[in-house]
């Protein structure tokens, strides 16, 4: 964990209220993420991990508790606190690839030349330089999510939030994009909060795996991943990797069973 604290989640609870019922989604979550740390949030489906991410992104107001994101530099530098990468990409279909990537810079009033230059640079880094003028529907799922990642990186957020970003992709594309994301991340060391339900993905990508219980979610256990960086494919065959994966599965299994019995 980095020495400087980046995200502080203090006693966050969330209850979904409707006219007829209230569903507790999160029961008191406390979590601190260090600057430059890659943290995976792992849990059974419906455990509230996506809700937690949306609370950090300020898209959802928690029923109780607070989230604080510490800026690396003085306030007023215009950098947004968070940028969210969605499972369903959530690209704006009426905007070309380049226009999608510049969206946040446009909203912040970054001058046109500067935002285009920055967007082109980011597009180059995710291997999309030739596709600036394509519309999202013209791209494959994997390429769309590259645009989603480029849009998030171009915003230069304090924290990168990812909500099962490769969950909708086929296994091969997912593996390729995991490696690409790791390469980009290892060169930037941005703070990442990464929601997934795949143990393999959590261990392969992150510095620390935070395991949530079945709904209402709270933190059940944390595992620090002691694999060296840069991570490589071969590490998936390492003893430490498999051992940790099995250990996590042991703890996750109960929660999955609880979650299933509630359905």
């Amino acid at each position: 964990m980095g020495a400087v604290t980046k995200i502080e989640i203090r006693d966050v609870r969330h209850v979904y209220q409707s006219d007829f019922s209230s569903v507790p989604a999160l029961a008191s979550v406390n979590l601190t993420v260090g600057d430059g740390e890659f943290v995976a949030l792992l849990g059974p489906s419906g455990c509230g991990k996506s809700s937690l991410l949306r609370i950090v992104a300020e898209l959802l107001r928690p029923t109780a508790g607070s989230v604080e994101i510490h800026s690396s530099t003085e306030l007023g530098n215009g950098r947004p606190k968070t940028a969210l990468v969605f499972q369903e990409y959530a690209l704006f279909p009426w905007r070309t690839v380049l226009e999608n990537v510049v969206f946040s810079l446009e909203m912040r009033g970054v001058p046109r030349d500067e935002r285009l230059a920055r967007a082109r640079k980011v597009l180059g880094r995710v291997g999309l330089q030739g596709f600036s003028d394509a519309y999202p529907h013209q791209l494959s799922g994997g390429m769309r999510q590259r645009v989603g990642i480029a849009r998030a990186l171009a915003a230069q957020p304090e924290v990168l939030l990812m909500d099962e970003p490769f969950g909708a992709l086929d296994a091969q594309t997912r593996t390729v994009l995991q490696e690409e994301l790791l390469r980009v991340w290892e060169s930037e060391r941005k703070t990442v909060l990464y929601v997934t339900h795949s143990i393999d993905e959590a261990v392969y990508m992150s510095d620390r795996v935070v395991l949530l219980t079945a709904r209402p979610g709270r933190i059940k256990a944390e595992y620090s991943v002691e694999l060296p960086r840069p991570r490589t494919m071969e590490m998936r065959g390492w003893n430490a990797y498999t051992k940790l994966s099995f250990e996590i599965w042991g703890a996750l299994r109960e929660e999955v069973e609880t979650a299933m019995s509630h359905e």
Partner: peptide, 14 residues
């Protein structure tokens, strides 16, 4: 309207 498009708009500063 897709909810995630709204979320993306908000999260990216609109």
């Amino acid at each position: 309207l897709e909810r995630t498009l709204l979320e993306a708009g908000r999260n990216y500063g609109a």
